[in-house]
Structure formats: structure tokens, C-alpha cells
Design a protein around this nucleic acid. Structure first.
Length: 318
DNA sequence: GCGTCCAGGTCTACC
DNA sequence: GGTAGACCTGGACGC
């Protein structure tokens, strides 16, 4: 096993554990990654197809943060592959995001002032994506399902179609490659992963991405938000909510019926929610855009990682 | 037990 | 262009 070591500096403030293992319990890169004693182990395929395992840990402090990275692979990595891994990890952990600008922009916000102190230094944390397939799988499994169902589908997809990899005495899995899902039958996906009608969307998106007709995550991140959203919504099974789950842009605000209820109570505590759930989503979207502008994705993550805290401070029932 | 309902959306047929 | 209705699955609920 070849091991490549790298130390990465982060822009302070940076809290590693909150970023890769946040209070809401969301995974960082992959639902079957391992988190233990302040370190995270996960696996992925590089754009060359090579399989690598990652172990990330933290050094220093929130104000002088450094991330230590060990990369494990059965074949020696090229300089280009090492560079790709560093870029993915820097992007996926938000090491170079200046979160102090966010804190300054929202310092007087009536909601966020209650949540930032407990999450100081947390980044959004995103999957290590070259293509958008991993995020598209997440978006599809979030649709029309309570969280337990989503967890069930995600775990079955990764366990059945991802690649198992043991390194550094830990066993984990990669996300499935698009070509693996593309070649699986609808029947097999439905039976093994219990994804129901989502199977045909998974296959369709896998085929589009494998065929190269969908922009990469980097390509999308360079587009204006609305343009990138329209591009992703061309995929079968991807509507506005799912597109905003997938996109890396700060303006994304992936609100659904459940989270709209939470944000309605935070934004309009004195007003009854409209009868129409879609109308509530529309009003919450407008309010978030006006309040938080380009910081609404980070605000969204901070709020949903603080529901217990907000419930106490704002007498929020959810 | 067993049947019914419905949920962290999206597509499609129909008007 | 607007909008019901259908769609997998499994947990919650009533009986």
C-alpha cells in the first residue's frame, strides 16, 4: 500500500470536527465513512479511476488550523492525482472559505446570532465530487421520503454498488461510479436498494454524466447560480429542490416542505403558515434571499445544525 | 395482525 | 401555463 502524506492549512476560524461530523449527524463525503476520535476515513475514485482511501485529522486550533491528510492507494499516485486529491479535500472541507465574512455579514441577524457561537468555525462540508453523481444520488433519495427512508436507500446504494476498501485498519466504501449504476437494471436497483420509482432516474442521470453531457462540479461552480441551476434541472428527476441540494453555490437554499415549516416559524413567528405548502416554500425562499443573500446556503446549514438550540431560544416547536 | 394513509418531490397527462 | 394524480417503500396509526 502506498501512502502519500500532506498537511493542509485552513483559513481561520476553522473547526474540523463540526465540518466533517456536524451536530445534525450528516455525513461529510459518504454515508459509510468512518468517524472516530476526531479523525475521518473515507474512500473515493479519482478521475483516472484509481481507488484511494483518505484519513483526515486535525492539528493546531480553531484559530491556527491545520488538517493532516494520509492518502492510501494500491498503486503509486502521479503528481496530477495528488494535486486532484488536494483540490478535492480543500474544496470539500471549505479550508479556503473566509467564514469570517459570513459572520460579519449576518452579525445582527435575529436567527443566526443564536446559532453562530456554538458552531464557530464550521464549514458546509461537501462530498468530494469531480462529477455531480454523488450529490444527485443524495438529492433523489431525499425526495418524497422521511429521513429514515433516505438513510436506508443511501446505505443500500453505497453498500451494493460502491467499492469496498480496507486501509489503515478501517473498512469503508466509495460512492458508486456512474457507469456501474448505468449498467444495473431497474429491477436490480429497486430490489437491492429499495429506491422504488427513483431507479429509472438514477440510471438516466448516471448515463448522462457518463456520456459527458452534464457539466462537472467545477464547471457548475464557475457558472452563475441561476444558469447552473437550469443546467442541472435538465436531468431527469431533478427539480428545483434537488438542483439546490446538488449545486455548490452559496445562493442555494434547498428548502422542502419539512424545512419550510422550521424556517417559517423562525422568519414569521407571529404569522400562521399559509394553507398551501408550496406557497410557504415560496415565501420562505424570498425571505431567505432578502435576509441572507449569497450566504443563504451556509445560513441554512447553520440553522439545521442548531434545531435543539433554537428550539430553546425561540420557543420553537418542530 | 391487517389495512390504510402518507411523507425532506418530480413528472406527465390533461384541461 | 396550470394542476391533479401517480409513483416505491415502510413506518405510524386505527381497528
Amino acid at each position: 500500500m502506498h501512502v502519500f502524506l500532506q498537511e493542509l492549512e485552513a483559513l481561520p476560524p476553522f473547526d474540523f470536527e463540526l465540518t466533517v461530523h456536524n451536530p445534525a449527524g450528516w455525513y461529510w463525503h459518504n454515508p459509510l465513512e468512518v468517524f472516530s476520535q476526531g479523525k475521518v476515513w473515507t474512500a473515493l475514485h479519482l478521475s483516472s479511476g484509481k481507488l484511494v482511501g483518505l484519513r483526515l485529522g486535525f492539528k493546531g486550533s480553531v484559530e491556527k488550523p491545520k488538517v493532516s491528510m494520509n492518502v492510501y492507494s494500491s498503486q503509486k499516485l502521479t503528481n496530477e492525482e495528488e494535486k486532484e486529491i488536494i483540490e478535492l479535500v480543500v474544496f470539500g472541507t471549505g479550508l479556503k472559505e473566509d467564514v469570517s465574512k459570513f459572520y460579519n455579514a449576518v452579525k445582527n441577524d435575529s436567527v443566526l446570532k443564536h446559532v453562530i457561537p456554538n458552531l464557530y468555525g464550521m464549514r458546509r462540508g461537501t462530498a468530494l465530487n469531480t462529477h455531480i453523481f454523488n450529490s444527485a444520488i443524495l438529492a433523489l433519495t431525499l425526495q418524497n421520503a422521511p429521513i429514515k427512508r433516505t438513510d436506508q436507500m443511501l446505505e443500500l446504494i453505497v453498500r451494493n454498488y460502491g467499492q469496498r476498501f480496507t486501509f489503515d485498519n478501517k473498512t469503508t466504501y466509495t460512492w458508486p461510479k456512474p457507469e456501474i449504476i448505468m449498467k444495473a437494471s431497474v429491477g436490480a436497483l429497486t430490489q437491492k436498494c429499495k429506491v422504488g420509482y427513483r431507479a429509472k432516474y438514477l440510471k438516466s442521470i448516471a448515463k448522462t454524466i457518463h456520456g459527458g453531457s452534464c457539466p462537472t462540479m467545477r464547471g457548475l461552480s464557475l457558472m452563475p447560480f441561476e444558469e447552473a441551476k437550469a443546467e442541472v434541472m435538465k436531468l431527469k428527476g431533478i427539480g428545483e429542490y434537488s438542483a439546490e441540494i446538488i449545486l455548490p453555490h452559496g445562493e442555494a437554499f434547498p428548502i422542502d416542505i419539512w424545512s419550510a415549516q422550521i424556517f417559517w416559524k423562525l422568519f414569521f413567528p407571529e404569522k400562521a403558515a399559509p394553507h398551501s405548502k408550496l406557497e410557504a416554500i415560496r415565501r420562505v425562499r424570498e425571505e431567505a434571499e432578502e435576509r441572507w443573500g449569497k450566504w443563504r446556503r451556509l445560513s441554512f446549514v447553520y440553522v439545521l445544525c442548531s434545531l435543539d438550540n433554537l428550539s430553546e431560544k425561540l420557543n420553537l416547536q418542530y
